[in-house]
């Protein structure tokens, strides 16, 4: 079975905040790094995100949340992916996430959390190193 030459990433905004500048900058940086980025827009439920990830057969789900509900939303996405046969998909999180929340989020299966100040290059490199390409 051949491996595809593109990394496919779903960039998603779970929850109710309306700020997607960060998500768009990341999407654009991943595009410029040669990845195919599916951007689904604002205010998505974990169920919608997981369904899109599976239908689009992505390698990575990158979540951006600025509402403060990350402790619920991020682990929920991981859990639903695992339940529905998407356990091999790399899940990343970004946004204003307090330092003390990060260990529990990683424990839940979010592979890495990127907080303000992260360079887009660091995100690109992390994805290249950790995505399991299909």
């Amino acid at each position: 079975m051949s491996q595809r030459s593109f990394i496919r990433v779903l960039v998603a905004k779970p929850g109710l905040d309306g700020h997607d500048r960060g998500a768009k900058i990341v999407a654009r940086a991943l595009r410029d790094a040669g990845m195919e980025v599916i951007y689904t827009g604002l205010r998505q439920t974990p169920e919608q995100i997981v369904e899109a990830a599976l239908q689009e057969d992505v390698d990575v789900v990158a979540l951006s949340c600025l509402s403060g509900a990350h402790n619920y939303l991020f682990p929920k996405v991981v859990e639903l992916l695992r339940q529905q046969g998407g356990a091999d998909i790399l899940v990343l999180g970004g946004g204003v996430i307090p330092e003390e929340d990060i260990p529990a989020l990683k424990q839940s299966g979010v592979k890495e959390i990127f907080t303000p100040g992260t360079t887009t290059q660091a995100i690109v490199e992390f994805i290249r190193a950790h995505a399991i390409q299909k």
């Binding site: 595009r31 195919e36 980025v37 951007y39 827009g41 239908q55």
Partner: peptide
């Protein structure tokens, strides 16, 4: 992109009203 091969696939943004319905498959 003709340079990097990368792409922003943004058509799903318009699909919110139907996403999740049974019998529907969306692929970008």
């Amino acid at each position: 992109s003709p340079f990097t091969g990368g792409a922003i696939l943004g058509d799903r943004i318009r699909m919110h009203a139907i996403a999740g319905r049974s019998g529907l498959y969306i692929r970008s």
